[in-house]
Amino acid sequence: MAQSLDKDTLARAAIGAPGPQRGTLGRRVRNTFTAYGFLGPAMGLVLFFFVIPGILLVVLSLTDLSSANFSDPWTFIGLDNFERLFADPFFPKILRNTVFYVFTTLIFFNLGLALVLALVTTNIPRRSGFFFRLIWLLPRLTPSVVYILMWKRIGQADPFGIYNQLFPEFLGASGGNLFLGGSPWTFVILTNGFVGASFGMIIFTSALESIPKDLITAAKVDGANVWRIIRDIKLPMIKWPLLFIATYQTLSLLTSFEYILLLTEGGPGLFTTEVWALTAYKRAFASYFGNSQWAFGATWAIVLVTVALLLAVIYVKLFKFNELIEEPRIENL
C-alpha cells in the first residue's frame, strides 16, 4: 500500500481529485459505498417524506375512498376523480386564485418587501438594523394560529373586528367593512406577507452583509449613487439568494393554506379566496356534510404536487442553478 503512494496520488488526495482509472475492483466498490453513504441520509428523507407519500397519494386518487366507505375494501375507479376535478365549475376560479395568491405574495412581500427590509436595515446603524429585524421576526416566533387570529380580530367586519368597530368611517368610509369584509384578498396577502417577508429578509441581509465593503467604496468612487449601487453591485452580488428565495417561496406558497383557512375559510361567498391547497384539504377532511372524500382530496393534492414538481424543474433550468456547482479549481496567482 504505502509504496504505491507516489507524489501524484498524494497531490490528488490533497485536493480531493479523483484517482486514476486503474483502481482495483475492491477500491471502486468501496468508493461507491462511500458516495452512497454520504448521500444516504438525504435520500432516506426524500424517500420517506416525498416518494412514498407521493405513491400512496397516486394510489389513493384512483379509488373512491371516503369516510362513508372506509371499512370496505378499496374500489379502484380509474381516472374518475380527475375527470370530476377538471369538470368542477369552480376549478378555473381556484386555479386563478392560486396563481394570484402565490405570485402576488411572492413578488410584493416574500421577495419585494424582504429585499427592501434587508437593504434598509443594512444601511442604518448596525444595532438599529439588528433591532428592527428582530421585531420583524417576532411573528415567526409566535405560533401562526395565534398570529392569524390576532389579525382576524383586528380585520373582521363591524361589529366583530376591532378596527372596523373603532373607525367605521375612517380610510375611505368603508361602512365598517374594511379588510376582511371589503377586501379579503388584500388582508390575507398582507397578513401572510408580513410574516413571509422575514425569511427572505434574513437571507438577503446576510448576503448583503457579505459583500466586501471595498466593492461599495469602489462603486462610490467610480461615481455610483445609492440606486446605481443597489442595481449594479448589490443585486447582482445576491443573485443566488434571490433566485433561491423565489424558488423556495413559490413552492411553499403553493402548498400553504392555513392563513386563508383561518382568516376567511376560502370566503366570503363562494370560493372568493379559495386556493388549490385549501380545496384539497377541504375535500379530504372538512366536507360540509361530514363526509370526508379522502380519495378526491388526494386527487387535488397529487395534481398540485405534480405542478409544483414541474415548476421546480423549470426554476432549476431557468435560473441555471447547476452553475452554482462549480468544478473546484486551484487559484494560481
Binding site: 467604496t217 462610490k220 468612487v221 452580488m237
Partner: peptide, 19 residues
C-alpha cells in the same frame, strides 16, 4: 460626495466587480 471629487482609487483587494 465621493463621485464628485474627481478621484480614482485602487484597493488591496482589487475590489473588482466579480459579475
Amino acid at each position: 460626495a465621493p463621485k464628485d471629487r474627481g478621484i480614482g482609487m485602487v484597493f488591496q483587494s482589487y475590489a473588482l466587480y466579480p459579475h
